[in-house]
């Protein structure tokens, strides 16, 4: 009998490398070399992890079809297996894997859809926090408003894309029959937030996205508005701020010195 550590080396190696033979130390009453039985473990490991990715990236799966998705997910798992038993954190590298995956290049928006789905997954499990209200903000004296630094809601995420990802995600999620989306609609920016229990996905303008990106980096109100205006001359600060408060995208603020 090999030592336990050697046995587990051989067992794990044969699970991950299907071309390797089953470990020497295993047997069964019906067959001294129980390859079919060992395959149950191989199958359990891969199919359960593929199921995790399938549940986490359902629109990405729908876009390429179940069979293709499962084959692709398996290659991802072989390349980047989970490193923690806390599978909630598994899949963050999947979007960048899709960017590099040569057989999915004809679905160029696939990685960004996966980024959007990953952001939604993270928002679902993010820390809870009561959103900042307009009433609380109204107490800030107007001469201090330019120096406001907002704290984004813990669930807030921004996914910017050169493809119409919100339209694609929406019709594949909400519509019984998927509506055609023309890539000529151009890029879309998605804002994801979970102020209470529901994860919400909003399509926001380029200026708004520039503003949120600057807030995420800790910019004060004046510099964030400046960054937004550089992205889009149409950017309207008051309207954007009111909307962000209305959807619960902000958690608090400080007045910088």
């Amino acid at each position: 009998m090999p030592r336990l550590t050697e046995l587990q080396d051989a067992f794990a190696d044969a699970i991950v490398n299907v071309e390797h033979d089953v470990p020497e130390a295993i047997t069964s009453h019906s067959s001294p070399k129980p390859r079919e039985r060992f395959n149950i473990y191989r199958n359990n490991v891969y199919s359960s992890l593929i199921d995790v990715l399938s549940a986490r990236f359902p629109v990405a799966e729908r876009l390429v079809g179940e069979e293709f998705f499962r084959a692709m997910a398996r290659m991802f798992i072989e390349e980047s297996p989970p490193r923690s038993p806390m599978l909630l954190v598994y899949g963050d590298a999947f979007p960048s894997f899709l960017t590099e995956f040569e057989h999915a290049q004809d679905v160029p928006y696939l990685p960004d859809i996966a980024r959007l789905e990953w952001a939604r997954h993270q928002a679902y499990h993010a820390a809870d926090c009561a959103p900042l209200t307009a009433g609380e903000l109204a107490t800030v004296p107007s001469d201090q408003s330019a120096r406001l630094v907002f704290e984004p809601h813990p669930s807030l995420a921004l996914v910017r894309s050169p493809f119409p990802i919100v339209s694609i995600w929406q019709t594949n999620t909400a519509d019984d029959e998927v509506k055609p989306v023309s890539l000529s609609e151009g890029g879309q920016d998605a804002l994801i937030v979970r102020p209470q229990l529901e994860v919400e996905t909003y399509k926001i303008s380029g200026g708004e996205a520039g503003f949120v990106a600057a807030l995420n980096e800790g910019a004060n109100l004046a510099s964030a508005a400046q960054a937004a205006l550089e992205e889009s001359a149409d950017f309207a600060l008051d309207k954007t701020l009111a909307q962000l408060l209305a959807i619960g995208a902000l958690a608090g603020y400080q007045v910088s010195r």
């Binding site: 009998m1 046995l7 067992f11 490991v45 923690s84 038993p85």
Partner: peptide, 22 residues
């Protein structure tokens, strides 16, 4: 059972030999 090997989480409940060492 065991499920982690070399920091990789295999997400299944894998069997053990019932030895003194185990």
């Amino acid at each position: 059972a065991w499920s982690t090997h070399d920091d990789v989480f295999l997400n299944d409940l894998l069997p053990l030999p019932y030895t003194e060492e185990t």
